[in-house]
Design a binder for these strands. Structure first.
Length: 257
DNA sequence: ATGGCCGACGAAGTCGGA
């Protein structure tokens, strides 16, 4: 079976690429982030032609997450338990489902903008609510995966050069501690295999960052030990990031069972 | 040392991304 997480940076702008990728790589379940479209505007038909049922959670211009499955799934959940608001709205950043015997959470963690920003405090609150949600889920599910764009580089090795990250988000002690609290519930950050170079999942569009190998590992797959033991391979499709008209994030592919 | 791109919205320029 094949499970994938991918921040597509607008499903509207990326539709042809995402369809082509799915056709070539045949994920059984793919979680995508940053839809930038409403549930109504989501291209359900285009995916159903490829055999996917799409479960979407999007409200428009920003954010948005979806799960696309080759077979029907159960217990679709949107939002975290007691998810904090941002500017009085519950943003569409979390969706979960039960796929066969595996519980899968697909996340788009808030960016944080800069340390000290209101959005940074929101990011930490959001991660706290993620911890509480996953804590509750672990009572029910042993085969659990929490994946998506975490907007956190877990260690200094997960960025091209930590010296370039002074006063930056994604690498602060606060963010890493908030992630560590989720892991302490009984999950492991499963390290993906890179097809070339360091196992980065994101390269900024600007300044030839991809060509200079200046990336970050911020798209993560967290798994319980019982699910991790079923993983045969986990790898980053950097080839997709190379292509013209691609997302700035690469798909992370989990082959299991 | 700095900035360098891209997408949505909407029709120019601003915001968000990380």
């Amino acid at each position: 079976m094949r499970l994938v997480t991918w921040n597509v940076n607008s499903i509207g702008a990326r539709l042809d690429r995402v369809l082509a990728w799915c056709e070539e790589h045949q994920p059984d379940l793919i979680g995508i982030q940053e839809l930038k479209c409403t549930d109504d505007a989501f291209p359900h038909d285009a995916f159903s032609h490829l055999g996917y049922i799409s479960y979407t959670h999007g409200t428009g211009r920003w954010n948005g997450v979806a799960l696309l499955a080759k077979s029907s799934v159960r217990d679709v959940t949107k939002n975290l338990n007691a998810q904090p608001l941002y500017e009085d709205t519950t943003e569409p950043r979390a969706i979960a489902c039960t796929f066969k015997d595996v519980r899968v959470w697909n996340l788009y963690v808030p960016n944080g903008r800069e340390p000290g920003h209101e959005h940074f405090a929101y990011k930490l609150e959001w991660l706290k609510s993620l911890k509480e949600t996953i804590h509750a889920e672990l009572n029910e599910y042993k085969q659990l995966v929490v994946m998506g764009d975490f907007n956190i580089a877990p260690t200094d090795d997960d960025v091209w050069d930590i010296k370039d990250f002074e006063n930056s988000t994604h690498v602060t002690v606060e963010e890493r501690n908030a992630l560590a609290k989720v892991l302490q519930l009984g999950l492991v950050d499963v390290m993906p295999r890179s097809l070339k170079g360091k196992p980065f999942t994101f390269w900024d569009y600007r300044a030839l960052m991809f060509q200079k190998a200046m990336g970050m590992r911020i798209d993560l797959v967290l798994a319980t030990d019982t699910f991790k033991s079923r993983i045969q391979d986990i790898w980053i499709d950097r080839e997709e990031r190379k292509l013209k008209g691609g997302s700035d994030h690469a798909p992370v592919v989990v082959d299991f069972e």
